[in-house]
């Protein structure tokens, strides 16, 4: 039996879904193409995780059945269940810097609305923009494993997908420039005495600050994905017992509480020339009390 967590099997299935997407795309059927594409995105996300370790897509809530199967310790393949798309996207966002779980969630939300209700979610979308955003997310997952969209869609359709990615970069640059311009105008025309036009954001685990490209104040730079870590044990005697971890975190979100500029997504951060990673310190709890050399 084909292992449902086998990365090659997942990739072949993603290819099939993408082929069907292009069949519909070339027939001018956006809704069918987008439906197949959204199904493929979930499979590509699971492929990206399973390539690292199949346990990453195993449902952890079935008393270990799926985890044991993915680990090769049980052969109950028929009972294997994978994690939901939302969990897969969330894990991908942490594991593969640049992947935007919120955007992926929007794409799979369209799919869920389409197959679970009488709504026509795809009829309300800007097709060009949808594809731009879609192919960007797919490209990030593929590139995490040294692959390109051509490896997934084949040479025949690679140009179409790559075209969307190029136009996505152009669109994002334009959108970011407009947002910065609007935020700047807001800030400059604020009433006297107003110190802040926006609030603070909570969500991502790590935070630093960066100069806001619109108003020049310091805004919040946030992210969840740790791309590097270094333990620091200070040299001085008084600080030696307060070690910390110096983390490199991929920037995922920028929020300026002053002019209310808000940029969500690594591509938006990059287009605004904000740092793509930031450093932050996290205290290490020394394990002195656990050490008991009696």
């Amino acid at each position: 039996m084909t292992d449902p967590f086998d990365p090659d099997a997942l990739f072949d299935k993603a290819k099939l879904f993408i082929n069907r997407c292009f069949d519909a795309h070339s027939a001018g059927q956006f809704d069918a193409a987008a439906l197949w594409a959204s199904l493929a995105l979930e499979i590509v996300a699971k492929w990206a995780l399973a390539t690292v370790n199949p346990c990453l897509i195993a449902d952890p809530s079935d008393d270990g059945t799926s985890l044991l199967t993915a680990a090769g310790l049980s052969k109950t393949v028929a009972d294997f269940k994978t994690i939901p798309a939302k969990a897969a996207f969330s894990r991908c966002a942490r594991a593969f810097p640049g992947f935007n779980a919120r955007e992926a969630g929007r794409i799979s939300g369209n799919r869920n609305d389409d197959i679970h209700s009488g709504a026509l979610p795809f009829a309300q979308l800007d097709e060009e923009r949808w594809w731009q955003s879609y192919w960007r997310e797919v490209a990030v997952l593929l590139s995490a494993h040294g692959m390109t969209v051509s490896d997934l869609v084949g040479a025949e359709n690679a140009g179409v997908a790559e075209g969307y990615i190029t136009r996505n970069n152009e669109t994002v640059s334009l959108l970011v420039a407009k947002r910065i311009e609007a935020a700047k105008a807001r800030w400059e025309s604020r009433e006297s005495g107003v110190e802040r036009l926006g609030g603070f954001v909570f969500g991502p685990e790590y935070e630093s600050s960066a100069v806001c490209p619109a108003c020049g104040n310091r805004g919040e730079l946030m992210g969840d994905s740790v791309v590097g870590e270094q333990e620091v044990w200070p040299d001085s005697l008084e600080d030696y017992f307060t070690p910390f971890s110096l983390l490199d975190v991929a920037s995922h979100l920028f929020n300026c509480p002053f002019c209310n500029l808000f940029l969500d997504g690594p591509d938006y951060i990059s287009a605004a020339d904000l740092p793509e990673t930031f450093e932050t310190e996290v205290a290490i709890e020394p394990a002195w009390e656990e050490y008991n050399n009696e």
Binding site: M1, T2, A9, D12, K13, K15, N19, A155, E156, N157
Partner: peptide, 22 residues
Amino acid sequence: LESAFRQGMFLVGYGRRAFYAP
């Protein structure tokens, strides 16, 4: 047809042993 030979997917085999392949 080079790309189609490498990209087009077939259902290969039957039942539990079936798999996708170009």
